[in-house]
Amino acid sequence: MWPRALLMVALRGPGKSLLLASAAGWIVMAWLVTDHRFQHSHFTALWLAMILAMAPPLLLREIGRLWRTSLRRLRHLTIGSFLSGYVGVWLLAGAVLSSLFVWVSVDSSRIAVVVAVIALWQCSPARQRCLNACHRAPALRLFGTTAQWDSLRYGIATGCYCAASCGPVMLLVLLATDYHLVVMGLVAVMITFERYLPARRPAWRLPMLRGRSIDWSGYDYGERRSFRYAP
């Protein structure tokens, strides 16, 4: 039932447009990668194509929510503000990863170090907190420029949590120079699947696997943190 259920959710509202955009991104990616004239100086084009290919399936819920909960006449503007913030963050992330890529490519031992750090990060509770934050429903204002400002901030926040959760593994995609598309495809499936798993307690665990201990979800009854009423 899982695949059918996911597809049902995916095709609601603006979902169809998003999936079409993603398909277009993959086509552009395939063309850029297989075009022998492609140089590393075309990194920005490659990175933008990657965002276009991989981001829409991850943003179905966010865009769907903006579509349903913003004023009808401001819908496209609201979504545009969100995407500006989101893509802006990912462009910055691309710049950082590009520099890292150059640094790592110098020496193969650096690759080993970076892979180990990424593997550790993938299992870390801090990363789980970022994944959890992606599930949070925002409280956005409805009218005027404050609505667009809230949407822009929502896009930036979502972009930051996204980049923190999945940016490091994107470096592995960049490093897989010969198998670029294949690795990108695998990573895309993996991070999309992970995106739609429910939020869970931050802990050291292998990503996407359930782990042996019970995840006691619900309010942290044992912890004495004061409750934050602001969302």
Partner: peptide
């Protein structure tokens, strides 16, 4: 509501 307010629970604290 208290369970749904947990930032690390299934609704990620969305209430």
């Amino acid at each position: 509501v208290s369970a749904a307010s947990d930032p690390n629970g299934p609704t990620a604290g969305s209430g």
